[in-house]
Design a protein around this nucleic acid. Structure first.
Length: 612
RNA sequence: GCCAGCGUGGCUCAAUGGCAGAGCACCUGAUUUGUAAUCAGGCGGUUGUGGGUUCGAUUCCCACCGCUGGCUCCA
């Protein structure tokens, strides 16, 4: 119903660092034509609705807005749609656009609008009228014999040049409410030019090709199993290697920044989660209790209670603050079956969790420290990001206005210290405190929520935490929850798609492939493999009988960053023919030069593969 | 959880109410190759699980498990 005013910047490409590895088509943002792109898309959604009206008499219409990459429209139809229907609908749309291109708009009174819709049996639309604020204009937009309660704006004529495609069918609750009827939704997209539509379709293909579930199979990264249950990920050696490298990076950075490692049990007595409030507020997400010695125990859905027990284990001095505890803590949460999605939405996952206990004076510095770490991660993996400051929710929340104001100020100060711009998410905070959430934008321009920093005034109260201040008084610390990667499952799932399976050298499952030209050159390469192994490089030595070309193909498919090919000439002068992933180049260089080159790429965690 | 679709060797996909097939992978043998697939042979499936209809079900029906696209909810 609502067309937003102007088209948004629709797609950007932060792919500078990837050098020759770049495979994503470079696209300029889709342009507005005679009308804004979103207006076109909204009009095309109307065109689709009118075609549905002709093909499915008795259809009742829901909403049909323009969205980020296209549009949708919801319908209550007499029968389920099939893929094959989309083409039929498209054909009907073209017919209608050609036959009756003129759009019309009439303003009516509220009563008249209702009568008009009742007459047509459009019960959802009748309901929609009540959503329009009193005093606002009520208009119908239409073309041919079809019209729709709609605020507009729309394009003037449907015989202008534009290009569209219907993409998929899905179910959607009326007004997004799961207690209401399920409608059928058709998604589509539209552009002013064919080139832009084609580019968009190529982009959709690229997304499909980079799907972490597809690459997970192709590159032997992970699996899930019917016999193990939905939402549980099995990490294969290749992906476990990636994870271990990232964990190593993570611990290095945390130790450098004064975090202390802790480990806490996966299962605790239920009373712990009563005290923490999880049982009262989070029970839906928790698994049923298990009985141990006739007492109920629970699998942990979060790590904070465990960390708090460690804090509380003895008296704490102000000298210990800020106290930063870090754990790669595996938690289990019940997610409804329909929301599970590869590694990105699972039921058991490992958070890179930390809790910082500090005074309110220390808060801004601690936040700055966390944000600095987020920036390091963003840079290391080549993401772009947007940071959102989420403030006090309107309905229920705890803590005084003063403490909220101070915490929000601290979040702002922390961001200012590291020069981080903040978008505002008004009222988006947790009930227990404000936070900064990050959306990371991947190489395909899609956004993912990963990092988060949250102030918590609640748990220190509930667990009655304190420390002894310099004046001898017992005082209450503030707690900061933070995750930088978020969860390994989601982070690495995103990373697979971000890199398209082409991991940077430092965390690639295999880093160097060795290919002899003939089997008799294998001994030379074996000595190189030993030297690489001695430097802790992960080597795929393809030294068995077999043909060179096949090995080259296999190494390329496995996305191994470097391939060293050697025959008589190389063996004679201690050189290697280096072939970089994604290229056909053959650069002959001394092995020592190669070794120092990749050592540098590894130690700098370079994103690209340019050897100096 | 809800709506819709799907489930055939490790992977990608055929086929039919009447003996389940191909390519890749894997194994064996031959081939010794200068930058993306050498040739030949072989192994491998109770067609997701359970029930029903039928002379006969992988195919039709039901339930469950799992997956996919969305909705709703989230790291």
């Amino acid at each position: 119903m609502l067309a937003s005013g102007s088209s948004r910047l629709y797609f950007s490409l932060p792919y500078k660092t990837m050098g020759e590895e770049k495979t994503t088509p470079v696209r300029a943002p889709a342009k507005d034509g005679p009308f804004p792109l979103s207006t076109l898309r909204h009009s095309v959604s109307h065109l689709m609705a009118s075609a549905i009206g002709r093909l499915f008499p008795g259809v009742r219409f829901g909403f049909g807005p323009a969205i980020e990459h296209g549009f949708y429209y919801d319908f209550d139809l007499p029968r389920p749609l099939e893929e094959a229907d989309l083409e039929k609908i498209e054909r009907e749309m073209r017919k209608i656009a050609k036959a009756s291109p003129q759009l019309t708009c009439v303003e009516v009174t509220r009563g008249e609008a209702k009568a008009r819709l009742l007459r047509k049996g459009q019960s959802y639309k009748v309901e929609a009228i009540d959503l329009i604020p009193e005093g606002e204009k009520i208009t119908f937009w239409g073309h041919s014999d079809w019209e729709d309660l709609c605020e507009g704006p729309h394009v003037d004529r449907l015989d202008r040049e534009f290009h569209f495609k219907l993409l998929s069918i899905a179910g959607a609750y009326w007004r997004g409410d799961e207690k209401r009827p399920m409608l059928q939704r058709i998604y589509g997209t539209a552009f002013w030019t064919k080139a832009e539509l084609d580019a968009h379709l190529v982009w959709l293909e690229e997304i499909k090709a980079r799907d972490h579930r597809k690459l997970g199979t192709e590159l032997d990264l992970f699996s899930y199993h019917q016999e193990a249950g939905a939402g549980f990920v099995f990490w294969h050696p290749n992906l476990a290697t990636v994870r271990r490298e990232i964990e190593r990076f993570w611990w290095d950075e945390h130790e450098r920044r004064g975090y202390q490692p802790v480990y806490t049990p996966h299962v605790s007595r239920e009373t712990l989660f009563e005290v923490s409030g999880h049982l009262a507020n989070y029970a839906d997400m928790m698994y049923a209790p298990m009985e141990i010695d006739s007492m109920p125990y629970r699998v942990k859905p979060m790590n904070c209670p465990g960390h708090i027990l460690i804090y509380k284990n003895r008296g704490r001095s102000y000298r210990e603050l800020p106290l930063r505890m870090a754990e790669l803590g595996t938690v289990y949460r019940y997610e409804r079956s329909g929301v599970l999605h590869g590694m990105l939405r699972v039921r058991g996952f490992t958070q890179d969790d930390s809790h910082i206990f500090c005074t309110s004076e220390q808060l801004a510095d601690e936040i700055a420290g966390v944000l600095d770490l987020v920036l390091l991660v963003v840079k290391t993996f080549g993401f772009e990001y947007t940071a959102y400051l989420a403030t006090r929710p309107k309905d229920k929340s705890i803590g005084s206005d003063e403490i909220w104001t101070r915490a929000i100020a601290s979040l702002r100060q922390g961001a200012a210290k590291v020069g981080m711009p903040l978008e505002l998410d008004e009222g988006g905070g947790a009930f227990y405190g404000p936070k900064i959430d990050f959306k990371m934008k991947d190489a395909l321009g899609r956004e993912w929520q990963l990092s988060t920093v949250q102030c918590d005034f609640n748990l220190p109260e509930r667990f009655d935490l304190h420390f002894t201040d310099s004046d001898g008084q017992a005082k209450r610390p503030i707690m900061l929850h933070r995750a930088v990667l978020g969860a390994f499952e989601r982070f690495i799932g995103v990373l697979i798609e971000h890199f398209g399976g082409r991991f940077p050298l430092w965390c690639a499952p295999k880093q160097v492939a060795l290919v002899p030209i003939r089997e008799e050159h294998a001994p030379y390469l074996r000595t190189l493999a030993e030297r690489l192994n001695a430097q802790n490089f992960r080597v795929e030595a393809m030294l068995d009988a077999g043909h060179m070309n096949k090995k080259i193909k296999d190494a390329q498919h496995a996305q191994i960053p470097f391939m060293l090919v050697a025959g008589e000439r190389e063996a004679a002068d201690g050189t290697v023919a280096v072939r970089r992933r994604g290229t056909r180049e053959q650069i002959v260089m001394p092995f020592d030069a190669f070794l120092s080159g990749i050592s540098k790429l590894r130690s700098t965690r370079a994103l690209g593969l340019e050897l100096e």
